[in-house]
Amino acid sequence: MSATFALLGLASLSGCATEDEHGDADLRMGYDLDCPRWRCGYNSAEVNGKSVRELRLDGQANADGVAIAGFLPPLGGLLGWELGVEGDSLVARGGLLGTSTLRGAQLVGSTILFDLGEGLSLPVLIAGYEEVEAWGAGDPIAAYSLVYLDLDGLGLQRSVCQGTLTDPLLASVVVLAGERYDEDTKTVVPDQDGWITLGCAGSASAKLALLGYGPHGDVDGEGTSATVAQRQATLKMITADYCGTGEAHTVDGVPLEWENRAGTVVPATLPPAGSLEAIWTEAGALCLDEPRLGDDVVLGCELPSCGDLTLDDGEWATYAVLD
């Protein structure tokens, strides 16, 4: 893993101080000091109480009224720079002739200007860049530390990933371009040109990317992107949406082993007999044996035992970590 960071120097800020919760608790795993940050992690991305989990690159506002209003490169040039994406990575284009491109660690020190509505604006610094080793096949995943100055919090520096007050640089986001994720139904919303999703470390969307199932990921080690059905099966699996209705059945820090049909993600150790949790498809769990939260889980549907079913019948198999 490589990482690059910038000194934080944010000033001339204006902003609002609302206390709305944009909790996507079912689409993330909360931060736990005993759990690696990309396995557990932080809350959903927001600034000053407004969600930035989904953003448009064309300047239009998201559902919470937040828009990307501009981009300033590290040295403060004002020559028409614009923020965009290449695959699932951020890039910025502009410069004197409009032909310069910044990507990767070159973006550190840049500022994204957010329009919060009602004449309020907030600069967010790209304070760090790292390349996180993929959990499956493919190249490392680009991740960015995004930090702003919270005037309502006595001028404290905050990450856009909530819950990181002590060290805002610890939290990073991955970018999933051209796709959104419905928090209520736990479904993939594909073909969203101009949109990006910011997945904080530990969130379901970040795990989706690290597993190789992002919109531009490598699901088989040969550069093939997962289909929408494969990505949705992954989202259902991560959130334990057994019935496929959007109701999650998982809590922070629950250990789990997973294995995909392509063989690019495999359990760290051979799962013991009787540990199979479920086989997963885009509709949810095809069958269920050993719920990750134990036998007290109450479902809104009836699922058969996995019996003679195998991983070949779905996209994922998951295994509970037994005591």
Rank of each mutant, 00 (worst) to 15 (best):
G253Y: 02
S100Q: 12
I126C: 04
A201C: 15
Q230R: 15
V108W: 09
E54H: 05
D241F: 00
A240M: 15
Y242W: 13
S14V: 02
S305R: 11
D220T: 05
A105W: 07
V297D: 13
A278Y: 10
E257H: 02
V108R: 01
T318H: 03
S2K: 14
D289G: 13
G77R: 03
L27V: 13
V66W: 07
G246H: 02
L33F: 11
G178N: 02
Q232A: 11
L57C: 12
G15F: 06
E82H: 11
G253H: 02
E19M: 12
V219P: 12
Q106W: 07
G163M: 07
C243S: 06
S203N: 09
T18V: 11
T166D: 11
T318K: 04
T187V: 08
V47R: 05
N260S: 06
W258K: 00
E315D: 08
A171Q: 05
L208F: 12
D252E: 08
A134K: 07
P215Q: 08
T224H: 01
L83S: 00
G217Q: 02
L120Y: 11
L156W: 03
K207V: 06
A142E: 05
G199Y: 07
N43H: 07
L165H: 03
G84H: 10
D252S: 13
C306D: 08
K186L: 06
A268K: 13
G253F: 08
G30I: 10
V173A: 14
S100L: 12
L322K: 08
E277M: 14
G119A: 06
E133I: 09
S121V: 03
S225E: 15
S205V: 15
L165Y: 05
A17L: 04
S275Q: 10
L146K: 01
A134Y: 07
T269K: 07
V108K: 02
K236T: 05
G136S: 03
A142H: 04
C40S: 10
A143P: 11
D184M: 09
C35V: 11
F71M: 13
V108A: 04
L276T: 11
A137S: 13
G65L: 04
N62H: 10
V47S: 04
F71S: 03
G246L: 05
L33D: 15
Y213M: 15
D296I: 05
G214R: 08
E282T: 02
A262H: 04
I238C: 06
G178I: 05
A17E: 14
I279S: 11
P304K: 01
A204C: 01
V124F: 01
L90E: 07
L293A: 10
L75P: 04
D312M: 07
T18D: 06
G76M: 04
Y129I: 02
T101M: 15
V108S: 04
P291Q: 13
A45W: 00
L210D: 01
Y242S: 01
D20E: 10
C306S: 03
T250C: 09
G178L: 02
A206Q: 14
S12I: 15
D312V: 10
A137P: 12
H216M: 11
S89V: 13
V173H: 06
R180F: 05
L122Y: 13
G98N: 12
A92G: 01
G221H: 15
I112W: 04
V91R: 04
A262M: 09
T245S: 14
C287P: 01
W81G: 09
T4D: 09
W135D: 12
E130R: 15
L33W: 12
A45K: 03
G294V: 03
V160Q: 01
G253N: 15
L55T: 03
Y319A: 00
L72R: 15
D26M: 09
